[in-house]
Computed example of a mutant assay.
Amino acid sequence: MSEHWSGPRYGKTIKVENGLKARSKRGDIGATWWSRRFIEVLESFGMGGRLTRGRNYARQGQVLSLSLSTSMVIALVQGSRPTPYKARIAIKSFTNPEWQRIEHALAGKALYAAKLLAGEMPADIETLFASLGLQLFPASSREMTMDCSCPDWEVPCKHLAATCYLLAESFDNDPFEILAWRGRGREDLLERLRTLRGTARAVAAREEAPPLTRCLDTFWQRQTASSLNLGDPTAVVRVDAVLDQLNAVPITVRRSNVVDLLRPAYLALRPGEQG
């Protein structure tokens, strides 16, 4: 008597309408260095061959939803069963003391916050983390946990792999998501950086100002233009000079720049010309 497989049989993948689709239609997925770095890290763990299984899923829009919170990414991925599979990718978040060190280091570099706000991950941010004895991206597979509700025992399965690719593209859109995945959301991190930078500026101002006991003799003296470094007090300043200090204003009225249209009005305010 021949043996027959009595387990469940699954048909073709159920196609999804309006699913989350990867923007990349061919080749590698990831438009920025930090999203490509994330994929490279996963490949370095020996996942490269298995990752490619989910690339078509990511491009076909089989992922129904993707949510990222502190330390956890959860996706619903439509496979061959009617019920979508739940794919989860967890990462070890930094501790509060570690984040305090990171925040002080970031606050000390105004360019870092400016680049993050502009949607760009600073090119040398991994060096900053390394100087603190930390790594922004996982250093080993032990720092990550992947699981899926599908019956495939391989990790990552194609559902997890599709989630990884869409996660990389979400990093393209917002580099703050990498930091949120490690334990600090955008608003919390920015508020902390603003506080730290404000405190640093206040300390610097106190250090620059001389103590009152050292300037009692001159504190009440009338300040002159030269002592205030205001330039030559007899110099004539054009009333329309303020217009020349403006950055280029991309506003035109009947093909004329708005600054050129305002200049006659300022010139009309010259002494002796007021009505």
Rank of each mutant, 00 (worst) to 15 (best):
R59Q: 12
V259M: 07
L66S: 06
P210K: 12
I102A: 00
G272N: 10
P122H: 04
P8A: 08
P97C: 08
V237R: 12
L117C: 07
H159C: 05
V253M: 10
E207F: 10
A75S: 15
C150F: 09
L134G: 03
S131C: 01
Q221W: 11
G79D: 05
P211N: 14
Y112W: 10
P84H: 06
T234N: 14
G46M: 07
D172A: 05
A31S: 13
E207I: 14
H159N: 05
S44I: 08
K12F: 07
W34H: 10
A87T: 11
R9Y: 08
G133Y: 04
Y112M: 05
Y57Q: 05
L116A: 03
E3P: 00
A123N: 10
D124N: 13
R81F: 05
R222T: 15
C148F: 04
S69L: 01
L179Q: 01
P151Y: 13
R186T: 08
L212M: 15
S131T: 13
S67D: 13
S6T: 14
A123H: 12
P175I: 02
D240V: 06
Q245R: 15
I14A: 02
I178Y: 01
S35H: 05
T13P: 00
S69W: 06
L166H: 03
A180P: 00
L196C: 07
M1I: 13
Y165A: 02
S131P: 01
V259N: 04
I91F: 06
R194N: 11
G183L: 04
A105H: 02
Q223P: 03
I102K: 01
I91A: 09
R186W: 04
Y10T: 09
G119V: 07
E208F: 09
G61Y: 04
H4E: 14
W220G: 06
G275T: 15
M1K: 12
R192C: 04
W220F: 15
D217M: 09
A58G: 07
E177K: 07
R81M: 08
L136W: 01
V249C: 10
P175N: 03
Q274D: 07
W34P: 01
L68Y: 03
L179Y: 02
G48V: 01
G7R: 09
T32A: 02
A162G: 06
D217E: 15
A202N: 11
I74V: 15
D172Y: 03
S227E: 14
M47I: 05
R9A: 07
H159T: 06
A113P: 00
V259G: 04
S141N: 14
E3K: 12
K158G: 02
R206W: 05
L190P: 02
I89A: 05
A113H: 07
I89S: 00
S69N: 11
A31E: 10
